[in-house]
Amino acid sequence: MTDTSADISELREIHRFLSIIQDINVGVIVVDTNYIVRVWNSFMEVNSGILGIKINGKCLFDVFPEIRKSWLYDKITEATTLNTPVFNSWRQHKEIFHFPNNRPFTGRTMEMRQNFTIIPLSNLDGKIDEVLIMIYDVTDEACAEINLEKANSQLLKSSITDGLTGLYNRKHWENCLSEAYDLFRRNKEPVTLLMFDIDHFKSINDTYGHQAGDTVLKRLSQVVKKQIRNTDVAGRYGGEEFTIILRDANRESSFYVAERLRHAIESQVVEYNNPKAGGIQVIRFTISIGVCTLSIPAMPNYGDWLKKADNALYFSKEHGRNRTTEYGLNDTEETMNIEIQRPVIKKRDN
C-alpha cells in the first residue's frame, strides 16, 4: 500500500513536471549526442508548426536543415566539455530557428529574435548524454533596443550635421579640426585644411531667390561628398562657406584635390523650377578655395591653422575668384607669421 502511494506521488510529480514543460512560454528541446530529438514542447510546436510526435526520434538537422550545424555543434560541445550552461544573446546570433514573429505589428519585424541557453544533462551514471536547449522569444525586447539605437543615432546625427546640406555643422567640424591638429602633433603625418565659398552667392540669392540659393548649396554638398574620401571631414562653416580636412594629405595632393573639386563645381548645372519666373532657371556657379597644410612649430594651435586657410581663401577672392590659393611657400616662421605681416602666399592661377 505504501509502495502504491509512493508510485502515485511520483507519477504526479512527473505529470506536474511535464505540464510545466508543455505550458511554459519558452522553447524546450532535448537532443542526444546524435542530435536526435527527445523532447519538443508546445512552444516549439506552436512556432514551428511541427508536433512533438512528428519530430521526436528524428535528427534535428534533418527536420531543420537551415540550422547552422557547425555553429550549434560548437555551442553544444562547449556546454558538454565544460559541463556548464552556455548562454547566447540574439545580438550574437539572432536565432537558432527561423520562426516568424507572432506579433509582427507590435514587434516591427517578421522574424522572431531568440536568446537561448544550452544545458548539459547527465544520466544516472553521471555521463552527459543529452543537452537541454531553451529558446526565449525576445523579439519585443530586441525591437525596443533596435528602435532606441536608431533614435539615438538619428539624434546624434541631427546634433552634428547641418540640416540643409547634410555636411557636418560648424561645432562638430571644429571639434574634428581640433582632433586633427592634436593628432598631427603626435604623429607628424601631413594633414591639410581647405576653406572655400561660393563666388557671388548673394547675387544668386538676389537673382533667383533664396530657395534657389538653398538648391545650389545642396548641390555643392553633393559634389563635395563625391570628391572626398571617407577619412576626410567636410563641414559647413557658415552661410556659403565650407571646409574640408584632408587627412594624410601633403601640399601637392591637397592642391590636386582642391582643383579637382573646383572644376567639378564649375561644371555643375543647377536647374531650378521657379513658376514665378516662367519655369526652369539654369544656374551655374563657381567656388574660391584656400589651402593650408599643417606644419609646426609655426602654428601654435588649430585656430591659427584655420586663420591661415582663411587668409588663402581671402586671397583667392581678391584675385579673380574661381581659383585655388595655397598658403605659404614653405613652413618657415617668417612665411607663416601673419600677425606681423601679410602672409606670403603661393599664387596658382588657373
Rank of each mutant, 00 (worst) to 15 (best):
H200P: 00
S203C: 04
N205E: 00
N205Y: 01
T207F: 00
Y208V: 01
G209M: 08
G209E: 05
G209W: 05
Q211E: 13
A212W: 00
A212E: 00
A212D: 01
G213Y: 02
G213F: 02
D214N: 15
V216H: 03
V216M: 04
R219Q: 10
R219T: 07
V224P: 03
K225I: 08
K226I: 08
Q227T: 13
I228A: 06
I228H: 10
N230V: 11
N230R: 14
T231G: 08
G235A: 08
G235D: 04
R236Y: 11
G238C: 06
G239L: 08
E240L: 05
E241W: 12
E241P: 10
E241Y: 08
T243S: 09
I244S: 09
L246G: 09
D248P: 00
D248V: 07
D248F: 07
A249Y: 03
S253F: 11
S254A: 15
S254L: 05
S254R: 11
F255M: 13
Y256E: 09
V257T: 07
V257P: 01
A258D: 07
A258P: 11
R260D: 05
R260W: 02
L261M: 13
R262E: 04
H263T: 15
E266P: 07
E266R: 12
V270K: 07
Y272L: 01
Y272T: 03
P275S: 15
P275D: 13
K276F: 09
K276G: 08
K276I: 13
A277F: 02
G278R: 10
G279F: 07
G279S: 11
I280W: 10
T286M: 03
T286N: 12
I287R: 01
S288M: 07
G290C: 03
C292P: 09
C292S: 14
C292N: 14
C292K: 12
L294V: 10
L294H: 10
S295W: 05
S295C: 14
I296K: 15
P297T: 11
M299C: 10
P300D: 11
Y302W: 15
G303C: 05
D304C: 13
L306P: 00
K307E: 10
A309L: 06
D310M: 00
N311Y: 14
A312P: 10
S316T: 13
S316F: 11
S316C: 07
S316R: 09
S316E: 05
K317G: 10
G320P: 11
R321E: 04
N322T: 05
T325N: 14
T325L: 11
T325M: 13
E326L: 15
G328I: 02
L329G: 15
N330F: 04
N330L: 01
D331G: 14
T332V: 08
T335F: 13
N337M: 04
E339L: 14
